[in-house]
């Protein structure tokens, strides 16, 4: 085989002409090979950004042949739209709660699992399993668990001597219920990512710390946490963007209610576009969502250099 390879290199160097014809052939092949992907990305990923921006300056019901140009009116409406602000606030609360609680629990579980032990694979598989479970089915069973009369959760709440709230029917409790489900279904993914991060930390650090008489608690805060900061940072960004994209659980469990107390930005886009046919306004909302996600993504690349300690 080595002989053959040499032969190729030799002949390739020899003639410039053949090289250029080869370049042409390669260029054609490259374009042909990547064409399907770039066509699809162009039509269904890049074009929508431009078209959303365009539609956001119009009033349109998606059916009428004519769109009415209204300038920035959709954006002005948004500033005065209490439901928009409510959905932004809900999205923020969801993001904050999920980041702090879910990532915290995931880190705790990952440190417990980060050793040789019996049942390790089983624990990991069970805790991870909601990640791949159909979100509609998750929302279905949790809707039933939160049932204030016959739900499973009432058993545990009564056991500690409290009265079960009317979870999904209560303006105060509906968003916490959504947060619980999002944490339940996402904690396993974060745990697995933390586990991968933990295996990258050399045991030598812990051995050295032990020699110096450090307690496990000190080891955790002085070694594990700082060295895991790239993973924590990655999971924070993924979780925040995940909260910004939340739809399924809200759509099934509460439909944004009661009184928009669980409405989130994507669900509000869906309502405007596909239930009320306010296509222009929904497009303006989508543009704002896109801008927020872009800012977070760009901030991520900037900040990861400053905050993350290796």
């Amino acid at each position: 085989m080595a002989k053959r390879a040499q032969l190729v290199h030799g002949s390739a160097d020899k003639t410039r002409k053949r090289l250029s014809s080869r370049e042409k052939r390669d260029a054609a092949a490259f374009i042909g090979f990547t064409f399907p992907n770039f066509l699809l990305l162009g039509v269904f990923v890049f074009w929508p950004i431009i078209y959303s921006l365009y539609l956001s300056f119009f009033r349109w019901n998606m059916i009428a042949p004519r769109k009415t140009f209204i300038g920035l009116a959709n954006y002005r409406t948004m500033i005065g739209d209490a439901v928009f602000w409510q959905s932004m606030r809900n999205t923020l609360v969801l993001a904050a709660a999920v980041v702090v609680v879910k990532i915290g629990i995931a880190l705790f579980l990952a440190t417990l699992l980060n050793r040789k032990m019996r049942m390790r694979g089983a624990y990991r598989a069970i805790i991870f399993s909601p990640t791949f479970t159909t979100s509609v089915a998750i929302a279905m069973v949790w809707g039933w668990i939160f049932d204030p009369n016959f739900g499973l959760l009432r058993v545990f709440i009564n056991a500690v001597g409290l009265r079960s709230p009317n979870w999904l029917g209560d303006v105060q409790w509906a968003l916490p219920a959504i947060i619980i489900v999002v944490i339940w279904s996402g904690v396993g993914y974060d745990m697995v990512i933390f586990l991968a991060g933990l295996t990258n930390i050399s045991q030598e650090y812990y051995d050295a710390a032990q020699v110096d008489g450090a307690t496990p608690w000190q080891c955790f805060w002085r070694i594990t946490v700082p060295l895991l900061s790239p993973t924590t940072f990655f999971l924070t960004i993924v979780s925040v963007i995940g909260a910004l994209k939340a739809f399924d659980i809200v759509a099934i469990m509460t439909e944004g209610g009661p009184l928009n107390s669980t409405n989130v930005i994507v669900y509000y886009i869906y309502q405007n576009a596909f239930q009320w046919f306010k296509t222009g306004y929904a497009s303006a909302l989508a543009v704002v969502l896109f801008a927020i996600i872009m800012i977070i993504t760009l901030a991520q690349t900037r900040l990861s250099k400053r905050w993350v300690h290796y």
Binding site: N37, F38, L41, V43, F44, V45, F46, W47, P48, I49, Y51, S52, L55, M62, I241, L244, K245, F247, V266, I269, Y270, A273, F274, T279, A282, S283, A286, V287, L289, F290, I293, M294, T297
Partner: peptide, 21 residues
């Protein structure tokens, strides 16, 4: 880089244009 950029664009933003297409 174009391919990389596509990863940053969330599908949720594209719902309406995709429907129109």
């Amino acid at each position: 880089i174009v391919l990389l950029a596509a990863m940053m664009i969330p599908g949720q933003v594209a719902l309406i244009p995709n429907y129109v297409v």
